[in-house]
Design a protein around this nucleic acid. Structure first.
Lengths: 229, 229
DNA sequence: TTCATAGTTCGATCATAGTCGAAGCATAAG
DNA sequence: CTTATGCTTCGACTATGATCGAACTATGAA
């Protein structure tokens, strides 16, 4: 009847509350088991299993068997990107599920977006990288400059390993709370794990909230300065 | 139960086939009446009316009464952006509604994305603007350089009128066919209407297809050159 | 005024799909 | 082996919501 991709099929997958809960939970970037996701979605294991197979069929998930557990994560950054976009629309329509509480404020401050840093701290880092000339927009891609490459290496990130992978190194990601870009892609992921290894941050077990340690916060701002305007 | 915006609500709105058809039709950027959208969606006027009020309640549409007609258009670029993202996921999942025919090829070549130029020609124009130094990524925004400003004025676009409006002037937009950026925002819109006024292009009445006239195609490539690599 | 067209509202019908209990596999532990 | 745990499949129940006919409202034309 109509031309173009079947958008309703994908949207209807996301449109079920239980499945939306599952996807939201996976926005933490962690791989979760079917049981955990069932609990997260507030349904029994049977229904969760049904949902998960449908999401998988739609190409939204990447399942991995491990022993008698089955782990699920989001299929790609693209999926996370669309989910963030939907969150933006939902927030704009005034449809937030929960009244904004203290947890919500922490969520705006810093949170995990699939596998990289989002929220206020995320956009701050992105802006700093750009203003220092480490990141540049070239044609359609975000590229790392020479000084930027050096910066990343000095920071203790194994850049060679990243560039050999197929996934894009740098990627812009727009988030719903800030409405500004932050750094995604494999480099964004590498930064986040590096922060974690250096104990700059702690990830909340239950939610997507990221909390900075005191020393982490200080170190962050010296490494990623931003002149006020 | 969960934190964050109610993503399922918005997604379920898009997830109905009839509503998805409506939204896809509105991706042409034109404002359409309820009757036209009913026909487009393949349902009666009554059901279309019901769908339209729901989409409106969800903040996805911008309705305008005009006489005894009621025109609908997408509420914002953000909505169009999410829809394009969903198309990307659907295309990736191999779920295209129609087998790729000749019309589909034309769709990839040049089409309307909400109100600006997308497809091959769209990314071409974007790349050209960037490589000529007319557009730059600064912090998180796409900005027009000084030479770029001059270029736009020379092109016959009333830049003052655009900058006075509240909508963002420049905006990156990623499309599903090319997986690359093209220019959105009010400037993107202005370019498209200018092309139309100069008879460079013709918009198909039924679909989102844009066809370039022969002279338009030539003029386009001289104005937006791109050195091969 | 009368008629026609555009759109909304109401009500009834009907199908899709979300839900869970129960049973069935598969893997790991004792 | 037996037992326990994680997950899938089957089947039945149920509710949500899409659909359209019919009646109603509103704007425009004659």
């Amino acid at each position: 009847m109509k031309e173009g991709p079947d958008i309703a099929y994908i949207a209807s997958l996301i449109g079920d509350p239980a499945r939306a809960n599952i996807l939201t939970a996976l926005m933490s970037g962690k791989a979760l088991t079917a049981s955990e996701l069932a609990q997260e979605a507030g349904v029994t294991l049977q229904t969760a299993s049904s949902h998960l197979s449908k999401l998988d069929a739609g190409g939204l998930l990447r399942p991995r068997k491990q022993g008698r557990h089955k782990y699920f994560s989001l299929a790609s950054d693209d999926v996370a990107h669309v989910l963030e976009g939907l969150m933006g629309l939902a927030a704009g329509a005034g449809h937030v599920r929960k009244r904004t509480g203290p947890k919500d404020a922490r969520l705006r401050k810093a949170r995990v977006c699939y596998n990289h840093l989002a929220g206020d701290m995320g956009t701050h880092m992105f802006d700093s990288l750009v203003s220092q000339g480490y990141l540049r927009l070239e044609a359609d891609d975000l590229v790392l400059s020479e000084t930027g490459t050096q910066f990343v290496l000095d920071f203790g990130i194994d850049l060679d390993a990243l560039t050999q992978a197929r996934a894009p190194l740098c990627r812009e990601c727009l988030d719903w709370s800030e409405r500004r870009s932050h750094l995604g892609g494999s480099l964004g992921r590498a930064f986040l794990t590096r922060f974690e290894n250096m104990s700059w941050i702690k990830r909340d077990k239950e939610t997507r909230v990221i909390s900075f340690t005191r020393t982490g916060q200080q170190a962050f701002h010296t490494m990623f300065p931003l002149e006020e305007m």
